[in-house]
């Protein structure tokens, strides 16, 4: 399913999108299907599935640890695409990885593997638009959305350039810093949501962990929330994981369903 279809479907239902991140292969490749299924059962609208990289500089300690568990569990890009293909989801799947993994596999092969395994979007936190030309070309050819990030520090001039190339949704970075669960919503987050004027859906990530925060962000004008560390924390605990993933997904989804 295309990301844009999902967002227009949710818009009709007056629901915000819940984009749930976990790292594939955390803690083992075989666990992923069960966890993703639990998130979808809880109400996740889009799954952002991490493909682990050894040096994840944009991620905080929680997701770093998840990535480490995944790599130690033997996850590789080959296993990743096989796992994704086996999921057979009826909602959009997005891959989140670092640029060297894509670069090493080759832009064309990576994008084709995405398309073939049912992935509809790619997020690369260390690939700003300036360096994204090659990858963007193959994404267009294969109907895969290359999703760009916008940060509170992004200047208006850069914002214009990014919005012009935006596909799927715009990933708004809620605050300066790396990923990781926090308890409040920064005023800079609201300002950023207001500042980004576009018809492309806006999803906010970095630091969201509760239904209350998620609701505030949707009320502030965002079309979706991206939640990662709070789910990865549950996986890290190793206790009752699928059930608790489902419960948290449901809490978040209910909080952003206004219709």
């Amino acid at each position: 399913m295309r990301i844009s279809e999902k967002f227009s479907e949710l818009k009709k239902k007056k629901e915000g999108a819940l984009i749930a991140y976990i790292c594939a292969g955390d803690p083992t490749p075989s666990a992923t299907k069960e966890y993703v299924t639990a998130l979808v059962r809880g109400g996740a609208d889009i799954i952002e599935l991490g493909l682990p990289f050894s040096d994840p500089t944009a991620d905080g300690p929680t997701i770093q640890a998840g990535i480490e568990r995944s790599l130690n569990g033997g996850m590789t890009p080959d296993i990743y695409f096989r796992t994704v293909a086996s999921l057979k989801m009826h909602i959009p799947l997005v891959v989140m990885t670092y640029y060297n993994i894509i670069f090493k596999r080759g832009h064309e092969k990576f994008v084709k593997d995405c398309a073939a395994s049912g992935i509809s979007g790619i997020i690369v936190p260390d690939l700003p638009p300036e360096e994204s030309g090659d990858l963007a070309g193959f994404c267009r050819k294969n109907d895969v959305d290359l999703i760009f990030l916008v940060a509170p520090t992004t200047t208006d001039e850069r914002l214009k350039r990014i919005l012009a190339e935006a596909k799927g949704f715009i990933y708004l970075v809620a605050r300066l810093g790396v990923t990781g669960a926090r308890s409040d919503v920064a005023s800079s987050t609201r300002e950023l949501i207001q500042r980004v004027k576009t018809t492309t859906p806006k999803a906010v990530g970095f630091g969201i962990s509760s239904g209350k925060q998620a609701a505030e962000i949707i009320c502030a004008g965002a079309d979706g929330v991206i939640v990662g560390s709070a789910f990865v924390d549950i996986i890290a605990s190793g206790k009752d994981v699928p059930a608790r993933l489902e419960v948290l997904a449901r809490e978040l989804k209910e909080a952003i369903s206004l219709g």
Binding site: T57, Y99, P128, E130, A151, T154
Partner: peptide, 14 residues
């Protein structure tokens, strides 16, 4: 070379 960094840092590099 180049600039392969998160968007947050791009303005700082500029």
């Amino acid at each position: 070379g180049g600039q392969f960094v998160p968007e947050v840092l791009m303005p700082a590099l500029e």
